[in-house]
């Protein structure tokens, strides 16, 4: 150990060691051997590479790639993982379908599965219209508030998700149709009824117009929206006296609604989602703060 010389010292002391023979601007290049650990790592990498090509999918072909001896594929692995988790969740799903809807939230395990799984389903299928936070958008109801067109109980939400609204693919879909009053009412009457609706919802409106509008409302609108304007959930007729507007509560939006009517459609989900998924997402939506 005492007369051990550091390799770099040897190079320096021996003056002119072996070089490659190339000279650039007077700079010579050493022809030192590769460090042993480096060489072995390099050989190991080559061996690894050869083995990998034989065992795993490697060379790209026109349709796909060479399969490799192990027959491994990432897709198959994902499918396997999904199958594993499905098998783990299947008993829960079976229970979810077996119990009464109202009993789901009483079973802590089922409730957790419903809210977590329902949230995932919601973000996959429902978020496109209702938003990932379920806050909705113009024309797409906000599911967080306490105002419901067709009802906010767990059963109401379940029915809505299962069959949808005003779609033609499901005969059990909730259905109603507002009349377009463009050719039924005169421009004056439309302006009056708009003023009246703004008045009963606590917004600024011309008093004389509003008074005149009350008659128009009772004659044309009250059959669905009720005499006091609070709407009818059986018909999906919105409550016009509250602070929540699906299409806007300003004069222009109200006038457009009165003239042309609205016809919001929601698809039926009973054929796209399983029964337990429909139930899960119902429980999830019900848990967002607006559930009745």
């Amino acid at each position: 150990m005492t007369d051990k010389k550091h390799p770099e010292e040897q190079i320096l002391q021996e003056g002119d060691p072996n070089t490659t023979g190339h000279v650039w601007d007077g700079i010579k290049e050493f022809d030192n051997p590769m460090p042993r650990w480096w060489l072995w790592t390099f050989y190991a990498c080559i061996a690894w590479g050869v083995l990998y090509v034989i065992l795993y999918p490697a060379w790209p072909l026109v349709n796909g790639a060479t399969a490799g001896l192990l027959g491994y594929s990432t897709r198959a692995e994902v499918a396997e993982d999904i199958a594993t988790f499905d098998a783990m969740n299947d008993p829960l799903r079976a229970r979810m379908e077996a119990v009464e809807l109202a009993e789901i939230s009483e079973d802590a395990e089922l409730a957790n599965f419903a809210v977590q799984g329902g949230g995932a389903i919601f973000r996959t299928w429902c978020a496109q219209c209702h938003g990932s936070g379920a806050a909705g958008a113009r024309g797409y109801p906000n599911l967080l508030d306490d105002d419901w067109l067709w009802g906010g109980t767990l059963d109401d939400i379940y029915l809505t998700i299962r069959h949808g609204i005003r779609n033609e693919e499901d005969l059990d879909a909730r259905y109603s149709e507002m009349t377009a009053f463009d050719e039924i009412l005169s421009d004056d009457e439309i302006a009056q009824v708009v003023a009246y609706v703004r008045n009963i919802s606590g917004q600024e409106a011309d008093a004389a117009m509003s008074t005149a509008g009350e008659t128009v409302f009772l004659d044309n609108c009250a059959s669905c929206h009720m005499d006091d304007g609070t709407g009818d959930r059986f018909l999906g007729a919105p409550n016009l006296t509250d602070a929540i507007w699906l299409y806007g509560g300003d004069e222009a939006a109200l006038e457009e609604t009165v003239r042309n009517a609205r016809f919001g459609v929601m698809p039926s989900w009973q054929n796209r989602l399983t029964e337990s998924e429909v139930r899960s997402v119902s429980v999830y939506v019900h848990s967002l703060g607006g559930g009745e």
């Binding site: 938003g131 967080l144 508030d145 105002d147 409550n239 509250d242 602070a243 929540i244």
Partner: peptide, 18 residues
Amino acid sequence: PIRNPQFVTLSDGSIRNT
């Protein structure tokens, strides 16, 4: 704080945060 959405307007006009 749940910030999606930032707040929810309830039917009586009150503002709710979650």
